[in-house]
C-alpha cells in the first residue's frame, strides 16, 4: 500500500456549537452544594469561638478551668467546668467498661466463630441498637435499668450516673462490634491458616493473630465510640440528673456538659447574658474534645492500616 489512496470526499462538521447552559451552570451549582459543608464547619467554629471569647471577657478563663464549682444559674454564681467534665467522664468511663468488652467479644464471635448465616442475621440486629433514638434509650435507662440498679444498691437516687452510663454503653456496642468486625474480616485468611496449620485453636488464632492484625481498626472503633459517648445528650439528660457534682461515685446524680446545655436551653435565657454565653463555652469544650478524638481515630486507622 505504498501509493497513497485518494482522500474520502466525506466531510465532518465538528465545529463547536454553543456549550449547553446546563454544562456551564451545573458545576458551579454543585460546587456550591459541596461548599455548604465547609460553611457549616466555619459556622460551627466561628460561632463557638466568638461567643466563647465574649463569655471569657466576663468570666475569666482562669475561673472556667480553675474553679471546682459549676453553678451559673444560682447565686453565688460560679463557673468551674470541672464538675461537668467529671460528670461527662464518669458516664463515658462506665459506658466504655460496658461496651468495650461486649463489643469486642461480639466482634470476635461474629468474625471468627459465627457461620455466615448467623452473621447475616445477628449483625443487622446489633445495628438496630445504633438506630434507636437516644430519647428512647433515656426512657429505657430511667424505667428499666434504674430500678434494677436501685434494687442492688438501695441508697441510689432516681437519677444516677450508673444507669445512664450502662445505657450509653449499650448504645455504643454496635459501633465497636461493627467497626471491629469489619477490621477483623479484612485480615486475610492466609494469616489464620498459617496458625491453624500449627495446631492453634480458634481462640488462639483470634487473640494472637486476628486481633493484633486488626488492632488499628479496633482501636479506632474504641476512640470513635468514646467520642460518641462524650457527645451523647438525651440519655444523660433523662437518667443522670442535673446536679453538677465533682464525684467519682457512679451512684450519685451528676450533670454532663451536654445535659447542662439542654437544661439551660429549656429555660428562657436572654440573648447575650452570661448564662447564654455558658452554652457556647461548654459547647466549645465539648466540640474540641470530640474533634480531637475523631481526628485521633482517623489518624490511628490511617497510620497503622494494611500492614499485612
Amino acid at each position: 500500500m505504498n501509493q497513497q489512496p485518494p482522500k474520502s470526499s466525506a466531510r465532518l462538521d465538528l465545529t463547536k456549537g454553543k456549550t449547553s447552559i446546563a454544562d456551564k451552570i451545573m458545576p458551579v451549582l454543585l460546587f456550591l452544594c459541596a461548599s455548604v459543608s465547609v460553611l457549616t464547619t466555619i459556622g460551627i467554629v466561628y460561632t463557638l469561638l466568638s461567643e466563647t471569647i465574649s463569655f471569657f471577657r466576663i468570666v475569666p478563663i482562669q475561673e472556667f478551668f480553675g474553679s471546682l464549682k459549676w453553678s451559673p444559674l444560682i447565686n453565688p454564681k460560679s463557673f468551674g467546668i470541672w464538675p461537668l467534665l467529671s460528670g461527662t467522664m464518669l458516664i463515658t468511663i462506665i459506658a466504655i467498661i460496658v461496651a468495650v468488652p461486649i463489643g469486642l467479644a461480639s466482634a470476635i464471635y461474629l468474625s471468627e466463630y459465627a457461620s455466615r448465616r448467623v452473621r447475616k442475621i445477628v449483625k443487622p440486629i446489633l445495628e438496630v441498637l445504633a438506630g434507636v433514638p437516644t430519647i428512647v434509650y433515656g426512657y429505657f435507662a430511667l424505667t428499666f435499668i434504674t430500678p434494677i440498679v436501685r434494687s442492688i444498691f438501695p441508697d441510689t437516687g432516681v437519677f444516677n450516673a450508673l444507669s445512664a452510663g450502662i445505657v450509653v454503653g449499650i448504645m455504643i456496642i454496635p459501633m465497636i462490634s461493627s467497626l471491629s468486625e469489619d477490621a477483623m474480616s479484612a485480615v486475610p485468611d492466609s494469616l489464620r491458616n498459617g496458625a491453624y496449620a500449627l495446631g492453634a485453636t480458634r481462640f488462639e488464632v483470634a487473640t494472637k493473630i486476628v486481633v493484633p492484625a486488626a488492632l488499628s481498626g479496633i482501636i479506632a472503633s474504641f476512640v470513635l465510640a468514646f467520642s460518641r459517648a462524650i457527645g451523647e445528650t438525651m440519655i444523660v439528660t433523662v437518667a443522670a440528673g442535673s446536679t453538677p457534682n465533682l464525684t467519682a461515685n457512679p451512684l450519685e446524680s451528676i450533670q454532663t456538659m451536654t445535659a447542662y446545655i439542654v437544661q439551660v436551653s429549656m429555660g428562657d435565657i436572654p440573648h447575650g447574658s452570661v448564662e447564654y454565653g455558658t452554652i457556647f463555652a461548654v459547647g466549645m469544650t465539648l466540640f474540641v474534645i470530640t474533634l480531637v478524638l475523631n481526628m485521633l481515630a482517623q489518624y490511628v486507622s490511617k497510620r497503622f492500616r494494611e500492614e499485612y
Partner: peptide, 14 residues
C-alpha cells in the same frame, strides 16, 4: 468525615 463525628447537640448550638 469530621462533621459526621460532631455531636448533634453542637449542631443545635450552631
Amino acid at each position: 468525615s469530621t462533621l459526621a463525628g460532631v455531636p448533634s447537640i453542637v449542631y443545635g448550638i450552631l
